[in-house]
Design a protein around this nucleic acid. Structure first.
Length: 588
RNA sequence: CGGGGUGUGGCUCAGUCCGGUAGAGCGCUGCGUUCGGGUCGCAGAGGUCCCCGGUUCGAAUCCGGGCACCCCGACCA
């Protein structure tokens, strides 16, 4: 028997060709038409290009090309988190109810969390995020000397979204990178937070997603100093307030604006009742003789806050933002009261409601109503209103808060410029958790002074699939996707116009050269018409194409085409691989 | 969860109002043709018409119930 030979691997042309990625063997079911129910560009193109297929609402299969892109996106995220000291973990996706009960989120998460019982009848949850799990592990940290730590994982998260939509943009099962920072104090947390902020900006730059950070509500996740990264897109689901002049930007759930003060007359000593037959809306009351302009009316909203009927007051021409209401009250379940609940509590129907002299329900009043006098509002009798209402004198406010939703054109609180409201996709979220989880799970470290302190934590998330979709939203045209080289399913494609011996040989030679140079390349050897091959290459968005046909080959040329610009040039066969390599490496 | 819409071959859709044994285009298979931008011709395969029940001689079509998916809103990192 021959002795085992251990030899250093040598480039082997024959082996390379055996491993050649041939389009004829590639499973990429491209479609000429997108399914009619796909609306968002990324959704349509990822389906048409054969990247993804839906299994059911909010659950997608990643086909080979889709998974390849997904992994490239994840790898960029991984590299940038490693670069700030992140250490990668693999954690359970199914968690015992107990751990969520311990943090209190078993109840507060509500229906967004998938829950299931095991054979013993024990309750479990599918992880929607991993604060609880990481903090449990972090309980083994014992000394300030071990800090700071940044821990992360890239894994499946489950969220039982009420309405999955827009392909990969909002799904129920998805991969997310979440990292958690562990510091001994607030200053350390600030530093870890800033590291993530910078890492996230590098990630979006490498993905070529235009992005900016906005002040945000941290919602059910808990915490403060919350920054969301946004990319403008009609396919998004967040409205963002942006100042075109200074750097102010905030999620509409959080942001505010300066509004022109309304000058009120003092009004009467006490509110005056007056009949308003048939008046049911702000607009109708504006037009009613003896009524008032919308900005001189009080809008009284009846909300059920965790089952407690509550009055919420905003100016007549303002909108309530329910997330702001949730944030200031801590309520979990908020819904408008039903008409019959409202009538039972108030004695009147919507359209004639008001808070004057109401004492048996909590009343939360928007800050914009501070100091307002001589206002008009419903009198809790159908077809009757009050005028001459002074908010602070006549209404028993239990809480004042910023509840108003900013409208486009209102003035920036920093510089006074008119604000814009931009539809955006949320592509990342970083926020400071503080010591909440550390205290619950006993993650404490000894301090230099010899005492003990709970670890101060931060939490940082990026949805991989959503970012993949966001790249497509930012980079496509009417022919298909235009992937940035950094995440393209292939960096280059060699398109054979004919399948004769000479063309195939030239294609395989180029393939081997590019492969040897480290270029991720695909050989289109399908027996199809030129139009089909070009259209498919453009649809799936390969950044660079080398076209080999009899026309150019006769003169020793290939054609080099750039997907993003459609620019085509002739290159000498001998230098074709180098041309591609240079373009790819410059763009990586 | 509220409102709207849709379920017919792999994809896009017609047929449903007015019940009569299921169609087109694209795609797919074979043969021929063509060969640098989704050729052309011939032949062919492929459908529990979302499911269950009812009415009827007969249901894709009418009636009842259910399910799924999409869009808008609510909600949601």
């Amino acid at each position: 028997m021959d002795p085992v030979q251990i030899t250093k691997a040598q480039p082997d042309c024959a082996a390379t060709l055996k491993r050649t990625m041939r389009w004829s063997k590639l499973f990429t079911p491209t479609l000429r038409d997108a399914p009619n129910d796909a609306v968002a560009p990324s959704h349509r193109l990822l389906i048409r290009g054969g990247f993804i297929r839906q299994l059911h609402a909010g659950h997608y299969s990643m086909l080979p090309l889709g998974w390849k892109v997904h992994q490239k996106v994840a790898q960029i995220v991984r590299e940038e988190i490693e670069a700030i000291g992140g250490q990668e973990f693999l954690l359970p996706t199914m968690h015992p109810a107990e751990i969520w009960q311990k943090s209190g989120r078993w109840d507060t998460m509500g229906e967004i969390m998938f829950r299931l019982d095991d054979r013993r009848g024990n309750a479990n949850a599918l992880g929607i995020t991993h604060e609880e799990i990481f903090t449990t592990v972090a309980a083994e940290l014992s000394s300030y000397k071990q800090l700071p730590q940044i821990w992360y994982h890239i894994q499946t998260k489950f969220r039982d979204e009420a309405r999955p939509k827009s392909g990969l943009l909002r799904v129920r099962e998805f991969h997310m990178k979440d990292s958690y920072s562990f510091d001994v104090d607030e200053a350390g947390l600030d530093a870890s937070f800033d590291l993530h902020d910078a890492a996230y900006r590098r990630i979006f730059a490498r993905l070529e997603i235009p992005s900016f950070g906005v002040q945000a509500s941290s919602g059910a996740m808990g915490g403060n100093d919350s920054v969301e990264f946004m990319t403008p897109s009609d396919a998004g689901e967040d409205d963002v307030i942006r100042c075109p002049q200074c750097d102010y930007s905030a999620n509409i759930e959080k942001g505010t604006s300066a509004i022109t003060p309304v000058v009120d007359e003092a009004g009467p000593e006490t509110p005056e009742r007056f009949d308003t037959p048939g008046v049911r809306t702000i607009k109708a009351l504006e037009e009613f003789p003896g009524g008032a302009a919308a900005d001189r009316q009080l809008k009284t909203l009846v909300m059920m806050m965790d089952g407690l009927l509550t009055l919420v007051l905003v100016r007549g021409d303002h909108q309530l933002n329910t997330q702001k209401l949730a944030d200031v009250t801590g309520a979990i379940e908020i819904r408008p009261a039903e008409v019959k609940e409202t009538f039972a509590a108030m004695g009147a129907h919507p359209g004639s409601l008001g808070a004057v002299a109401v004492t048996d329900h909590p009343i939360i009043v928007d800050e914009a109503l501070r100091g307002r006098t001589n206002m008009t509002t419903g009198a809790n009798t159908d077809d009757v209103h009050y005028r001459g209402v002074s908010v602070e004198r006549d209404i028993n406010a239990s809480q004042w808060a910023d509840l108003r939703e900013v409208q486009a054109g209102e003035a920036c609180v920093n510089c006074g410029a008119p604000l814009e409201i931009v539809r955006c996709i949320e592509i990342g979220h970083i926020f400071k958790l503080g010591t909440k989880y550390a205290e619950v799970f006993g993650a404490r470290v000894s301090t230099p002074e010899g005492g003990e302190t709970p670890i101060v934590m931060g939490s940082y998330g990026i949805g991989i699939g959503r970012n993949m979709a966001a790249v497509v939203e930012a980079h496509h045209d009417d022919k298909g996707i235009i992937w940035p080289v950094s995440v393209a399913p292939f960096e280059a494609v060699i398109t054979l116009m004919r399948l004769d011996k000479e063309t195939i040989a030239a294609g395989e030679k180029l393939y081997a050269e590019l492969k040897a140079a480290g270029v991720d390349v695909l050989l289109d050897d399908r027996d199809a018409r030129a139009g089909v091959k070009f259209a498919d290459a453009e649809l799936i968005g390969i950044p660079y194409r080398l076209t080999l046909g009899p026309r150019g080959l006769a003169e020793g040329n290939a054609e080099f085409t750039v997907r993003s610009s459609s620019e085509t040039t002739n290159v000498d066969l001998a230098s074709a691989a180098a041309t591609v390599w240079e373009a790819v490496s410059a763009a990586r």
